[in-house]
């Protein structure tokens, strides 16, 4: 896979940009991921469709990236 980071982030980046890959993934997620060479762990993570698990796996793959949780809290003036 091309792209920076690990196999999961590379796969998701390509998936977001490649309509044919999106169609293939919608038809056969596991087969498409095996074709792309993803590991069993990554395949299991994505097949779960669990947002928490997928976010955690991505954050583990891209530990050096410049991102942090941020919150914009609204403060009224009165």
């Amino acid at each position: 896979m091309d792209g920076n980071g690990g196999e999961l982030s590379s796969f998701l980046t390509k998936l977001g940009e490649d309509r044919q890959l999106q169609d293939a993934y919608a038809q056969d997620p596991e087969g498409t991921m095996r074709e792309a060479g993803l590991s069993d762990d990554s395949i299991e993570t994505l097949l779960s469709r669990d947002l928490g698990k997928i976010k955690a796996a991505l954050e583990k793959e891209l530990p050096g990236r410049d991102f942090m949780m941020f919150m914009i809290i609204f403060h009224s003036e009165t």
Partner: peptide, 22 residues
């Protein structure tokens, strides 16, 4: 200013003249 690393990565790929405010 984004929360997900992959979003940051996409923005930087879409425009290399990108930088984070974090």
């Amino acid at each position: 200013l984004v929360t997900q690393p992959l979003t940051a990565q996409w923005i930087e790929r879409a425009n290399p003249r990108s930088r984070s405010l974090h």
